[in-house]
Design a protein around this nucleic acid. Structure first.
Lengths: 246, 246
DNA sequence: CGCGCAGTACTTGTATACAAGCATCCGTCG
DNA sequence: CGACGGATGCTTGTATACAAGTACTGCGCG
């Protein structure tokens, strides 16, 4: 239990040097989630590296992370592809999200953090501003739900939800290409009011209704655009020269 | 909407060539979770590569995945370290797990899958066998909880729970070095009986009691072995030549 | 004896080279 | 005309080389 050498002093002031992998990962993830890289698209590590001005290494490491999130599929010696929206994973994400967000409502403290509440109120005002773009709406929606979790002291659980709900988000975007849905803002208001009133049961009911509405949207989209979803029996990638949707 | 070239046929019969990265990742993850690589240990990519008989590439890619799970910390140009058990992440995992497992109990179908039920029964018999090792107990415990999720049709959500609860598992192992805890098997029995009786409320109560017992164990361990947990203010890695626990 | 500073050995991040394997293309043969 | 089969170009997986930066060591000096 004796140290081998002297302990000279504290190590490692936090090194926050920005690595290029982080930038590459965030870029690719954004492009996948915004459908700029659509489901089924072929991803060549070489091409991505060239277009991003880096080598294969950071690209490859980013793809590995995206595989972990289920957003990309890699077939050794064959190719890498943006994964089709998997209805199974969408359902998984829906279940996970519902479980977490409903459970957090039961952990709300008696005295809510005033700063957080003010933030949520400002968020809702923004949501009802006319002329909101789809991008803005999604960002506000994310912040609102994240804020509710933080209110209950479970803010970090949001990261897990985020990484699991990639498929869910893509499906939602498929259906919300043009205008933000007006009804969702009202549902958000209802949830927050119930929370502020300390009515857990009502908040849970409102939240469940809200999340289920999102899920139903996805089901409708699936009927409209089945080609963007994974087939039931295994996922078959699309070769580059077989353009399915152009 | 016309293909550029003919569609020749089906692509990619599932290539299941075993990559060395997968083996390296599983090895490292196991060593971290079983505390063979204890919290705070320094990990040199070069040393790991040499000892595993591969190059830095698969080692490095595995470490990236472990970072994503929070089991490893990498400081650029400084070093890589097995992360200390972070009480915050333990609490997060506890919350996530409780939310998911309790929610799944509400989704149990009226007719339970007979094969799964039989499997759970066999599992419980095994748990009560005398002379059970700690390793066996953990494996059975995992299977039992996973099986309950599958019973509700949410088996895939287990993967998310697993990747989030690495810190929780390490803390539990710290406390269960010698003998499997006898009480847990009884709690499992109670849960399954309530499920089979179709009594959701009782099943939820039993599950909550069970999971909270696990969590309380962790708290006790923290008081006993604080040096294995992360300090409150930022995580300070341990240099190789400063042996903390040997 | 204590302090400061430069050298050195180590770290991870990135780029590149090579290996193994699959899909396609195209000529050949029946 | 159709089918088979090898050459070819692509893919990802792995190994290695180099770059940038940190921490430790040990000497010199006060």
């Amino acid at each position: 239990m004796t140290p081998h050498t002297r302990y000279r002093g504290l190590v490692t002031r936090t090194n926050s040097r920005r690595t290029s992998r982080r930038a590459v990962y965030e870029t690719l993830r954004r492009k996948v989630l915004t459908l700029e890289l659509p489901p089924g698209a072929a991803l060549s590590e070489n091409e991505l590296a060239a277009s991003l001005g880096v080598s294969r290494t950071p690209v490859r490491e980013s793809l590995i992370l995206l595989v972990e999130e289920g957003l990309v599929q890699v077939f050794p010696q064959v190719g890498s592809f943006v994964s089709r929206v998997d209805p199974g994973r969408v359902a998984d994400a829906q279940f996970l999200r519902e479980a977490v967000e409903l459970a957090s409502l039961e952990d709300l403290p008696a005295e809510l953090d005033a700063e957080l509440v003010a933030e949520l109120r400002r968020n809702l005002d923004e949501q009802r501003r006319p002329g909101l773009t789809v991008e803005d709406f999604f960002a506000l929606d994310e912040d609102f739900h994240h804020g509710l979790l933080r209110l209950a002291g479970h803010g970090r659980a949001w990261a897990t939800v985020v990484s699991a709900k990639g498929h869910l988000d893509r499906a939602r975007r498929l259906g919300l290409q043009e205008t933000p849905p007006a009804g969702f803002a009202d549902q958000h208001v209802e949830i927050l009011e119930a929370v502020l009133a300390g009515d857990v049961a009502r908040a849970r009911a409102a939240m469940r209704t809200h999340l289920r509405a999102v899920f139903d949207d996805v089901e409708a989209i699936r009927e409209r655009s089945p080609e963007l979803f994974a087939s039931a029996s295994g996922t078959v990638p699309v070769r580059r020269n077989v353009v399915v949707w152009e």
